[in-house]
Simulated scan of single mutants.
Amino acid sequence: MSEELQLDQNTLVNAWQQELPVYLKPGDSAQVQADLADPKGLRVHINAAGRQFYSFDFYCSYLDQRELQVNLVDVERDGVTVDEDHDVIQEMTAHYVRNIHECGQALQRYTNP
């Protein structure tokens, strides 16, 4: 049984904002914000590098001290929502989910003291 997660959401957001770019491709950028409705949640927005102008929005929530759940919320291309079932989008989404989980592992010092 896992212990109740106690974290300072602002500290965690700042740590994510600094650490996540390390896990992204050169040219990609990310913004991380606290989810105001969930003290264990984060909103991650990633702008993909390249001429396609894709952006991805994820909702991330800590289930416990070590487990992070990542859900795709939306994918846009040049500001217009696109079909998430396209193979290229699926591959990019899987890549970013992996990046987010890797970053979450690196930041366990904040969630699992």
Rank of each mutant, 00 (worst) to 15 (best):
H101C: 12
G104C: 03
T93K: 11
D57M: 03
S55E: 12
E19P: 01
H101W: 09
V13S: 08
W16C: 05
M92F: 12
E67A: 09
I46W: 00
H86E: 15
R66E: 07
V82P: 00
M92T: 14
V80L: 13
L68S: 04
Q90K: 15
S61M: 01
F53V: 08
N71E: 13
Q65I: 03
V22S: 15
Q52I: 07
L42D: 01
E76S: 11
N99Q: 14
P21H: 10
Q33R: 09
V32M: 03
V70G: 07
G104H: 06
S29R: 03
P21Q: 06
E102F: 09
S29Y: 05
T81L: 13
L72N: 00
P26T: 14
G50D: 01
L20K: 03
R66K: 10
K25L: 15
R51H: 08
N14M: 12
S29D: 07
D64L: 02
L63G: 05
I100W: 00
Q52T: 06
A49G: 09
R43D: 01
K40N: 11
D87S: 13
E102R: 12
Q31M: 08
T93A: 13
V80A: 13
N47D: 04
I100F: 04
D35I: 02
G104F: 01
D57T: 01
Q17F: 10
H95C: 08
L12E: 07
L63I: 06
V32I: 14
V88M: 14
V75N: 02
L12I: 10
D28R: 02
A48F: 02
P26H: 11
D78P: 00
